[in-house]
Amino acid sequence: MFSISAVPIDPAALQRRLADARAGACVTFEGWVRNLNEGQTVGALEYEAFVPLAESEGTKILAEARAKFDLLGAICVHRTGLLQLGDMAVWVGVTAAHRGAAFDACRYVIDEAKARLPIWKKEHYAAGTTAWINCATRGEAAGAPAAPPQF
């Protein structure tokens, strides 16, 4: 299950949905808003999504993870709206009989989500300026292979 959420993510509720007597492993990932990016002090973040395409692409990513790894369950939720430092921007949870598949699948889902979902991030800096991330006029194209994750 993939979804875009305009309200705060409730990780405990999501994890309960993954409950499965066959599962020996549950790996979760939380992406948080941090206070520094490329040397600038960040005060808040704004996420915007093209919701129908983000949800169909996110659903596709979860299906790929299920096809590649021996999973029992997979959920990903991504926030939109104005987020403050420490807020959860994204949550991924996967279950499997064994931990190897669960770790690998969780990593796959977050890496693909970052590279492929039509979601944009605007950083609000302490200095009062703002910037859409990756949208300076030099750099990677949309949908390009993911840069090494930097959480």
């Binding site: 999504a49 129908p52 991504h78 921007a89 944009w120 194209a141 949309a142 949908g143 390009a144």
Partner: peptide, 28 residues
């Protein structure tokens, strides 16, 4: 994206299409 599906940059456009241009993404 045309009609909520990613398309190639040279895909044909048709009357009535709903188009979204997708700048570099930054989820996560």
């Amino acid at each position: 994206a045309v009609n909520e599906t990613f398309v190639a940059a040279d895909a044909p456009l048709r009357d009535g299409d709903r188009i979204v241009f997708i700048p570099p993404v930054a989820g996560g």
